[in-house]
Each structure stands twice: as structure tokens, then as C-alpha cells.
Write a protein that binds this DNA or RNA. Structure first.
Lengths: 210, 210
DNA sequence: TGAACAAGCACATGTTTATGTGATTGGTAG
DNA sequence: CTACCAATCACATAAACATGTGCTTGTTCA
């Protein structure tokens, strides 16, 4: 028997979901609330397996609720429930340890399936959400890697710049004169199309050159 | 009718899958191959909707095949198929634009469902894979966020530093005197425990302060 | 009400960067 | 063989930065 809790501000939907879930074999709804104002105590008291959490709620919203719960409880499965597949919220929810993310328009049978999946350690997601997550993921981890044709020596200098070394320090670190350091850095600026140390450092991070 | 192509080295499994998919209403298998050596030409010739792609194949493997296909074709849906939910491969596949990732032990009915989901733009994933993806995602995007108690104004200055502005430019951008810019920057250096512009910029990136 | 602090401004001094011009050496590709 | 380029060094100058000291104003919090 999967023990479910419900956070949803719309009374009709809350009732509907409760009836659907509670009326299905293998599921029971322990309690339902219209916002997350006392979420910590409530979850502590009921010890559910899965929590269905609406995002948009007056008072403490779903993301805040999620954070509060995760601050004390890493085990309970939390399924975010929302009308929009809004990029920012999906991102925030995942970042804060949501186990799944489904749209409210999900058909009842599918929803029950999702709850089961969450309970058994899966990560149920509506197709559109899953697509978004994959997209975000590949964006985050894809850098065009222009390389800019930096020579080995130049990369070395850039690395030291990034580590906060002054020209003088770089010179002694690399056993060359400060004027040589200058030449290298000038070349680096040309190749990166920048004209200051901090821009070069910023570019090194942005383009993951090092 | 969803047009499917198959890349799978194991003859039994290849035949089994072909029979399953081709024998189901709404699906047709255009062709199947035992590796990706000529994947570009083959996909060009058949123009499938969905490609089932085994990862582990002799010759050109599934990840390589995926890359080759994506180099010329962004539309066709590619569903990775594997025995392991191996972290590295999942990561690589997603990075390179796979649409889904399912385990071979997936039951036939579920597999057909996944193919349909992929065809209609979804991102089908076996539960264990989805869980992994979420985990990776939250790892990648979780930084301790020390914050360092920067004031709003200080954050603003730091942002402009990162963007490569000089003190003078920051002053005119923020409508304050250059001396005030200096004060702010001094304070920022204290809070971040650094003592140069480039170190501050580097720290801003490392700690994702902005 | 009084301490703490963010935000603003001023002036001074020394260091570091940015930029220009120019030169030597050694390796490599045409 | 020669043209090209990375790596090295030198000298010079102006702009930008780092640091110190000191002052005013307004807000917030105990």
C-alpha cells in the first residue's frame, strides 16, 4: 500500500485527486493540504511514501515546500505537479531533489502509474518535461570549444592568470622574464579578442578553455 | 505508421525486435543492421522516424553512430538501447542528442510505447535511467553557494567586473563616482578573500555567484 | 538612542597592466 | 633555402588598479 500526501490549493482538484488515488487498489491518501505553510510538521506526522506537490500555491509554494521537506527528509518521494512545463520551475525542482515532474493534464491511469514509479525509486516525467530536461542537460554540458589555437606556453600563462598570479609571479613561476610574460599575454589577448586580464579570465571560464 | 530502423549486433535480438515491431499495428521496420559502419548512408536512404540504436556493437558503436547521424540529421528520433544503465554512456548519449535511453530488458509492450513516445517528440527513459539523469543534473548544478554576504550593489559591481568593465566604465554605468567604485571593490575583495580583479572574476565563476 | 553598516565621495601614492616598437633564436613547412 | 612562427628578452609610457585614510548620509536593529 503506497501512502500518499497531497498539496494542492484548488479544492476541486484536491478532492478529485484524493478520490482517484484513495479509490484505487494499492493506494491510500493520508492527508491533503492547500499549501506548504506547515509542511515540515505535516510530513513528519504522516510519514508518507510519496508526496504530490503542486507548484503554484498561495502562501508557501511547492518549490519552497520541496526545499523544506528535503532539508530534513531525503527519503520521501516527491512528485511535482503543475499546469505549465515552465523551464525555470522544472530546473529549480530538479535542483532541489524532486523525484519527478508531471503535468496536471496527465490522465488518471498514467498518474497512478507515475506514483507507483516514484514509490519504487524511479523518476517519472511527462514526456514534454523529460524532453526539456534532456535539452537543458545537453546545453549545460556542451561547449563549442573554439580552442582559439592557443600554444602550450600560452595556455600555461592563461592558467596562471586564472589562478590570480601577477605578471611578476608568472615570470618567476615559468622561469622567464616579465617581458616575455607580457608578449605571451598580448598574444593571448589577440587570440581571445579581449583586452584585459579579467576579460581573459572570464573567457577562459565561459569557454572552458582550461 | 511509424518507420523504424534497427542497429543491433546480436542476430537473435535483432530478429526478435524486428518481428515484434513489424508485427505490431502502426509500426514498420524499414531495415536493420549489425553495426554503424555505414550508418550515414543507410539513414539517408531509408529516412526512418525512429532509430533503435544498440550501444555495444563491434565496429562503429552506438555512440559513434549517434554522433554520425546527428552530424547531418537533427530530426530523426534516436532511442538508445543497452543492457547496462552505465553512467558514462548515458551521459555521452544525452550529450550527443539521443532522444531516449531504454534498457534491453524493457518488456515488449513498454518498448512499443517508448517508440511511439519518441516519435511524437517525447523523451522516453527507463525509470532507472531517468533517476540517473536527474541525479547527474542536480549534481552538475549544485554549488555550495557561500554567497559571501555581498550586498546588492556589490553584486552589481562584481557582475560588471566579470563583464570586463573598467572602474571608469562601471562608474558611468552605475552613475556613481570612480572612488565609490573603488570602495565597493575593496569591500568585495575583503568578502571574497582575494586581492585582484582577476581573482575576483575567477571566484565569481567558480562559486557561481552570478 | 546609539551602534552597525551600506552607500556614497575625495585625495594620495605606489604598483600593475596594456600597448608599442624592436630584436634574437630555433624549428618547420613549402 | 627561406619565409613563418613560437618563444624569448628589452625599453618606454600611459592608463588602470590596489590600498590607505577620512568623511557624510540614511537605514536598521537591539
Amino acid at each position: 500500500m503506497i501512502k500518499v500526501m497531497l498539496y494542492e490549493d484548488n479544492p476541486q482538484l484536491r478532492e478529485g485527486l484524493t478520490m482517484l488515488i484513495d479509490g484505487s487498489d494499492g493506494f491510500t491518501v493520508l492527508a491533503s493540504y492547500k499549501n506548504c505553510d506547515n509542511v515540515t510538521d505535516e510530513v513528519d506526522a504522516w510519514k508518507p511514501d510519496v508526496i504530490l506537490m503542486d507548484i503554484d500555491m498561495p502562501g508557501t509554494n511547492g518549490i519552497e515546500g520541496l526545499k523544506k521537506i528535503r532539508a530534513r527528509n531525503a527519503d520521501v518521494k516527491i512528485l511535482m505537479l503543475t499546469v505549465f512545463d515552465d523551464n525555470k520551475n522544472v530546473f529549480e525542482a530538479i535542483r532541489n531533489g524532486a523525484n519527478g515532474y508531471v503535468l496536471k493534464k496527465t490522465p488518471p491511469a498514467k498518474l497512478l502509474e507515475y506514483i507507483e514509479e516514484a514509490a519504487s525509486g524511479g523518476a517519472p516525467m511527462t514526456a514534454s518535461i523529460a524532453t526539456q530536461v534532456l535539452k537543458m542537460f545537453s546545453q549545460v554540458n556542451t561547449s563549442q570549444n573554439d580552442d582559439y589555437n592557443l600554444s602550450d606556453r600560452e595556455k600555461q600563462v592563461l592558467q596562471l592568470l586564472v589562478d590570480g598570479y601577477s605578471y611578476k609571479m608568472i615570470a618567476s613561476e615559468m622561469f622567464i622574464s616579465i617581458d616575455t610574460v607580457r608578449s605571451h599575454i598580448k598574444k593571448i589577448y589577440e587570440k581571445l579578442h579581449v583586452n584585459s586580464k579579467s576579460e581573459a579570465v572570464a573567457k577562459a571560464f565561459k569557454d572552458k578553455l582550461l
